[in-house]
Each structure stands twice: as structure tokens, then as C-alpha cells.
Simulated scan of single mutants.
Amino acid sequence: MPDKAWSAGFIQFLKFNAVGLLNTLVDFAVFTLLHSIGVYTTPAQIISYSAGTANSFFWNKKVTFRDRGSVSADSFDRLQLVRFIVLNLIVMGISVLLIHLLTDSLGIQVLIAKVLVTFITVIINFFGSRKWVFR
């Protein structure tokens, strides 16, 4: 029988991935919609990434990294929000740069570039969230 710490960590990992999938779906849906109506790639990426990020903060705070030591489940940690915003601004900047490089310099189709960049940004965001934002 696995120990409780391992089980709790594994469950947290599963929750993070479920929330991440939902964030990615929100991001891709908004990006695809904006791109299909003619919004340029960079503004579409910024808006779609922001929509996924807002979704991420809400669900990761409430479900994945729920602070069991807080006075209330609805308590608000401003420093945590600032860390979250800083991390996601950095990751968004990386994503915009990489999409630009892949599409303009390498000629990769924009939605394929978006998928490739998402693999990179998910890894950065996971470690940043776990080790810095929701520690």
C-alpha cells in the first residue's frame, strides 16, 4: 500500500493535469475563434493565453493546490496572485516569441506552432506553479 504523501502527490499531479487540459482547451478555443475571425496571431495568443490563465488560477487555487491551512477555502492571497501573474506573463512572453519564430522564421502553420509551443509552456508552468506560486 503506498504511503499517504505519495498518494496525495499523485492525486495533486492528476488534478493539475486535468486543470491544465481544461486551460489548454480554453486557450485553444479562444485562439482558434480569434484567428478564424481575422485577429492577428500575437493579439490572439495574448487574449487566448490570458483566458486560459484566468481559468488556471481559479481551478488550481480551488482544486489542485488548495491551501488546507487557510482560515477559509475562499481566502485570498495577494502574493500568490502576484507570483501567478508574473509566472504567466513570463510564460506568455515565451509563447508569443516562440510562435512568432516558428511561423515567421520557419514557416510552420500557426496552429501546429501553437501545439508545439504549448508542450513547452505547460512544462514551464507546471514547475513554476508547483515550486513558486502554490508552494
Rank of each mutant, 00 (worst) to 15 (best):
S72Q: 12
N23C: 14
N23A: 15
L101C: 04
V26H: 10
N55G: 14
D27T: 14
I99G: 06
S70M: 06
L81C: 02
L22Y: 11
T24C: 11
W59I: 12
S75C: 01
L101R: 05
N60F: 07
V133F: 10
S105L: 08
T103H: 07
L111F: 15
L22W: 12
Q12E: 15
T53L: 07
A44G: 10
N88R: 06
N125P: 00
G107I: 13
T42M: 09
A44K: 07
Y40C: 00
V26Y: 09
L34F: 11
F16P: 10
R78L: 11
M1V: 14
S95G: 13
L79P: 00
A8Y: 00
V115G: 04
T41M: 14
F76Q: 02
R135M: 03
I46P: 03
K114E: 08
L102W: 08
M92Y: 02
G128Y: 02
T118A: 05
A44C: 09
K114G: 02
T24N: 12
H35Q: 04
V115T: 13
T103F: 01
T64K: 06
I90W: 02
H35M: 08
I124C: 10
A18C: 12
F16L: 04
N60L: 04
T24Q: 10
T53G: 06
S70A: 15
I90R: 00
F126G: 06
L34A: 03
H35E: 04
L101V: 15
R66V: 12
D74H: 13
G38L: 07
F127W: 08
T118C: 00
F57W: 14
D104P: 00
M1P: 05
R66N: 08
L116R: 01
V110H: 13
N17R: 01
F134A: 05
I37T: 13
L102E: 10
K4Y: 02
L98H: 09
W6E: 01
Y40L: 04
T32M: 07
I94T: 13
T42R: 03
L89G: 14
V86R: 01
L21P: 09
G93M: 01
V39E: 04
L14S: 10
W6L: 12
V86F: 11
L87P: 04
F58K: 09
S129D: 04
F76S: 05
S7G: 02
T118H: 04
G107N: 13
F119A: 09
I120P: 05
S105V: 07
V91S: 14
L87A: 08
R135I: 05
N23Q: 11
T53C: 10
D104G: 00
N88Q: 08
I47Q: 11
V39S: 02
A73N: 13
A113V: 08
T32I: 13
A113S: 15
R130Y: 03
